[in-house]
Write a protein that binds this DNA or RNA. Structure first.
Length: 582
DNA sequence: GCCGTTTTCGGCCCGACTGTTTTCAGTCG
C-alpha cells in the first residue's frame, strides 16, 4: 500500500463530503468533512502516520469517526462509506452540482424525478422542456441551466484564477487612481489580494468618499475596463479587458473597518471569527457587530476596532486563513508572530546571467540588486546538464567564478558571491564534482528534469541532494507552477526532516509563478528548525522586484526575520551553511 | 461529525440574490 499524502487524504474527505451532501445529510455533517479536509491539507506532519498511530484527532475538526475513516483509507486504500455512496450516486451527478446555480438539492431532484445522471442527460431534459415541470423549477430555471451547460461546454464554466502579480498589476493602479481622485477619502484593496494569496478570482476595493457617486463614476471611467456592469453611490462593478472582475464598494467612514474586515476574508477566517463571537453573544457581519445583551449594532471605523471589540488582538491579513490565528489572538496575541518586512532581506542567493538563461551580465545584475538595497548577491547560473541557454560546463564555471571575483572587486557597495544552481540528476547526484563545488560560495540544488518520477524515487533523489555536504540550499523544492503545474510527487515531510537533519536550507522561490515552498510547507519547515532563504531567481534586473511575493509567502507562513536566513549579513549567513558548521 | 469558562446534548456565520412561491428554499460568496 503506497503511503497516502495529506492532499490525497484531503481529496478523499472532500469527495465523501460531496457524497454525503448528495445523500441529503445535514449540512453540518458535510461541513465537518470539509473542515477536516482543510485541516489535513494544512497539517505540518503526515496525517497517514498520525492516523495509523490513532492520533489524527489531534488535528482540529477531526474526532473519533474521522480518525477511523482516515485509518481505513491508509490501511486498505478505501473508505467503506465512500464505496457505498459511490455505488448509489453516478459520478455524473457530482458534475451537475458543479454547474452554476445548481447545488446538491436541485441535482438530487433532477436525478430522483427524471433520472438525470449526467450533463448529457440534463441537456436532453432541458431540450425536451421536462425540467420546467419539476417542483421548484420553472422556465427561467431551464434557461439558466441551459446557459450553465453552454458555459461548461465552452470551458469557461470552471473557476479562472489569475496569478497574483497579474492581478496586482491591475489592482494597484486602480487603487492609486482612486486615491488621487478628489472625491475619495480612504481606498484599500481587500479580498484575497490583500492576503497575498498565490492567485485570485477577482479584486475587491473598499473605499470611503465624501462624494460616493463621483468616486464610483471615476472608477467606471478608468480605461482599465471593458465593461461596467453597474455604478452608483454604493459602489460599482466592472470587468477588465483581460476578464478580471473588479468590485468597488463605498461605505460610510464609521463602517469602513467592518467592510474591510469582511471583504478581506478569508471566508474560513470569517466563519471561525463569527463562531467565536457568537459564543460571546456577538454577531459579526459586514455592517457591524450586533450585541445580544444590548440589541445594538456597533460599527467600527478601523479593522483593529473590529478585532478589539471581539476581544482579539489585531491579526495581519496574511494570517487570516483559520490556521490557528484566532485562537492565538484570543489568548492575548502574544503568540502571533512579528512578521517579516520586505526591507529586511539583505541579500539574494539565486539569480541568473547570460552565462546560462539570464538576459544580462553579472555587472548589470549586481547594480540592479545594489539599487534595491541588497548587501550581497549570489550569481547562480544553471549547471552543465541544463538545456537553458548556454551550458555552463565545468571549465566555463571556473571562468565564471573568475568573472564574479573580478566584478566583485570592481563594484562597490555590494558583495558578489560565486554560486551555481546545480541540477539534481535523477539518481540524486549533482552534475559538478566536489572539487569544483567546493570553490563556490553558495550552492543551490534544484530539480529541473524527470518530474514524473514516482514519489518514493523523487523523495530519495531530493534527500540524496540534501545529504550532499556542499549543497547549501534546495531551490524551488516542489517544482509547482501556480495555476499551471502541480508539485511533483514528493514526500515533503521527509524532505523537511532531511533538511533539518542535514542543516540544508530550503528556498522560498519568490517568482510569483512559483512561490515554492508554499505557505503551508514553509511554515512546517520553519517549525522543524530549517532556515528559509527567500530568493528572486531573477533572470533580468527588473525581476528583483518579485522579492515581495517571497516575503508575502513567508508572512503567510507566520515567519519572522529570525527564521529567514538572508535577513542576516553575509558573514553570519556564510557561517550557517552546513559546510561551515562541520 | 465536531465540540464545550453556558453545554457530553444541542447547537453549528451572515447576508444577498434568485426564482419560485404566497412565505421561502436553494445557492453563492
Amino acid at each position: 500500500m503506497p503511503e497516502f499524502s495529506n492532499s490525497q487524504i484531503a481529496a478523499a474527505l472532500e469527495e465523501l463530503g460531496d457524497l454525503y451532501e448528495l445523500d441529503g445529510a445535514i449540512i453540518h455533517r458535510v461541513v465537518a468533512y470539509r473542515n477536516a479536509a482543510k485541516a489535513v491539507r494544512e497539517a505540518s506532519t503526515s496525517v497517514a502516520g498520525l492516523a495509523r498511530a490513532g492520533r489524527a484527532t489531534e488535528l482540529p475538526g477531526i474526532g473519533a469517526t474521522l480518525q477511523e475513516k482516515i485509518q481505513a483509507l491508509v490501511d486498505t486504500g478505501q473508505i467503506p462509506a465512500a464505496e457505498k455512496l459511490r455505488a448509489k450516486f453516478p459520478p455524473g451527478l457530482v458534475a451537475i452540482t458543479r454547474l452554476a446555480g445548481l447545488g446538491p438539492k436541485r441535482a438530487r431532484m433532477l436525478y430522483d424525478e427524471l433520472g438525470i445522471d449526467s450533463l448529457d442527460a440534463l441537456r436532453a431534459a432541458i431540450e425536451s422542456e421536462r425540467v420546467r415541470d419539476l417542483r421548484g423549477f420553472g422556465v427561467k430555471a431551464e434557461e439558466n441551466i441551459r446557459a450553465a451547460l453552454e458555459a461548461a461546454a465552452a470551458g469557461d464554466g470552471g473557476e479562472v484564477r489569475v496569478v497574483l502579480d497579474r492581478a496586482l498589476a491591475i489592482g494597484e493602479p486602480i487603487v492609486a487612481a482612486l486615491r488621487a481622485d478628489p472625491a475619495a477619502d480612504r481606498v484599500e484593496l481587500a479580498g484575497s489580494a490583500r492576503r497575498w494569496t498565490d492567485s485570485v478570482k477577482d479584486l475587491d476595493v473598499i473605499a470611503t468618499a465624501h462624494d460616493p457617486a463621483a468616486l464610483a463614476a471615476a472608477f467606471a471611467e478608468l480605461g482599465t475596463f471593458e465593461r461596467v456592469h453597474s455604478s452608483g453611490p454604493a459602489g460599482a462593478r466592472a470587468t477588465t479587458h483581460s476578464g478580471l472582475r473588479v468590485d468597488l464598494r463605498i461605505v460610510a467612514p464609521e463602517q469602513f473597518g467592518n467592510l474591510l474586515q469582511h471583504f478581506t476574508g478569508s471566508k474560513q477566517h470569517n466563519m471561525a471569527l463569527r463562531d467565536m463571537a457568537v459564543r460571546k453573544g456577538l454577531h459579526v457581519s459586514e455592517y457591524g457587530v450586533l450585541d445580544d445583551a444590548t440589541g445594538e449594532t456597533r460599527t467600527c471605523a478601523t479593522e483593529a476596532d473590529v478585532y478589539a471589540l471581539l476581544g482579539l488582538a489585531y491579526i495581519e491579513p496574511e494570517l487570516r486563513e483559520d490556521r490557528g490565528e484566532l485562537e492565538v489572538a484570543a489568548d492575548g496575541g502574544a503568540g502571533l508572530p512579528r512578521l517579516l518586512e520586505p526591507g529586511e532581506l539583505r541579500g539574494d542567493l539565486h539569480c541568473h546571467t547570460i552565462a546560462s538563461d539570464g538576459r544580462t551580465t553579472i555587472e548589470k545584475m549586481a547594480l540592479a540588486a545594489r539599487e534595491r538595497g541588497l548587501e550581497y548577491l549570489a550569481i547562480t547560473d544553471h549547471s552543465a546538464t541544463m538545456g537553458f541557454g548556454n551550458d555552463v560546463a565545468p571549465d566555463e564555471l571556473r571562468r565564471q567564478i573568475e568573472r564574479v571575483r573580478e566584478a566583485n572587486a570592481a563594484i562597490e557597495g555590494i558583495e558578489l558571491l560565486a554560486g551555481s544552481e546545480v541540477n539534481v540528476l535523477p539518481d540524486g547526484r549533482l552534475d559538478y564534482d566536489d572539487e569544483l563545488l567546493a570553490q563556490l560560495d553558495w550552492v543551490i540544488a534544484s530539480v529541473h528534469t524527470s518530474f514524473r518520477m514516482p514519489a518514493a524515487e523523487m523523495t530519495a533523489r531530493i534527500v540524496a541532494a540534501l545529504e550532499h555536504p556542499l549543497v547549501d540550499a534546495l531551490g524551488h523544492p516542489t517544482g509547482r507552477k501556480v495555476e499551471r503545474r502541480p508539485p511533483y510527487a514528493v514526500d515533503m515531510e521527509e524532505v523537511i526532516a532531511a533538511a533539518a537533519r542535514t542543516g540544508t536550507m530550503l528556498e522560498i522561490n519568490a517568482n510569483p509563478d512559483r512561490r515554492d515552498l508554499d505557505d503551508v510547507h514553509a511554515r512546517a519547515a520553519a517549525a522543524a528548525g530549517v532556515p528559509i532563504v527567500i530568493d528572486t531567481d531573477a533572470h533580468w534586473p527588473a525581476n528583483f522586484d518579485v522579492a515581495r511575493y517571497g516575503v508575502a509567502t513567508a508572512r503567510r507562513a507566520w515567519l519572522g526575520p529570525e527564521q529567514v536566513a538572508n535577513t542576516r549579513p553575509w558573514p553570519e549567513l556564510r557561517a550557517l551553511r552546513k559546510r561551515a558548521r562541520r
